[in-house]
């Protein structure tokens, strides 16, 4: 028999409850930012259209980084893209999640010895879910999203917190690979 007596919850508990409610909404309405960094973006249209219809899960594409929740890094990242990707990631409003597509984001994949392509994405931005494959087919893409939803439910999708806590580490890695994160405008200066 539950007690009907009112017992005040501590502030942490209230916060936790609110966070859980927020998590319910967040995992049922993931807005993606499709940054077509590489070739895996080609399997997203089948996932979005009638074959798999991502909108059933509440996912949809969004126009700008500020509006989006999930950053889809679809494939290999050249240095030039990584600069822009870091800009994009930092513009997104929190809580934010990153899904890395393809082998290239995990260990460099087929471009592991290329002079222009980075090998490990999670050294530069925190990644919550990896979808392996070159290229991952649509089923695994959808499966990756469902994994992300599970992670959010279990409070394990904490990449964005990690980016705050270990910001120096990430920044040092970015600097080591890029030299300079700032983008200079080629046609203006």
């Amino acid at each position: 028999m539950l007690s009907t007596k009112f017992s005040p919850m501590s502030k942490e508990e209230v916060d936790r409850k609110w966070w859980e409610i927020g998590d319910f909404f967040r995992r049922n309405s993931l807005w993606m930012l499709m940054y077509c960094t590489g070739c895996c973006a080609i399997e997203l249209p089948p996932a979005m259209t009638s074959a798999y219809d991502m909108e059933r899960l509440g996912m949809g594409p969004m126009a700008t980084p500020r509006q989006a929740d999930v950053l889809l890094v679809t494939g290999y990242l050249s240095l030039k893209t990584l600069r822009r990707l870091i800009y994009t990631y930092e513009q997104m409003s929190e809580p934010k999640y990153v899904v890395g597509f393809g082998s290239c984001t995990i260990n460099g994949g087929i471009y592991h010895d290329s002079h222009a392509v980075i090998n490990q994405l999670n050294k530069y931005v925190p990644v919550d879910v990896f979808v392996a494959g070159c290229m991952p087919n649509t089923e695994s893409v959808m499966n990756g999203f469902i994994d992300l939803m599970d992670l959010i439910k279990n409070k394990k999708a904490n990449g964005w917190k990690d980016y705050h806590e270990r910001n120096d580490w990430y920044k040092a890695n970015q600097k080591a690979a890029l030299g300079e994160v700032k983008i200079h405008d080629e046609f203006h200066e």
């Binding site: 967040r26 049922n28 309405s29 259209t49 509440g58 409003s93």
Partner: peptide, 25 residues
């Protein structure tokens, strides 16, 4: 019309409350 199943009917509510639960700049 676009040959797909479509979202849940209360998806718009989820979207709005999700946005309200996010941090913003």
């Amino acid at each position: 019309i676009q040959k797909r199943y479509g979202p849940k009917w209360y998806q718009e509510f989820l979207d709005i409350f999700k946005l309200l639960s996010k941090r913003s700049v």
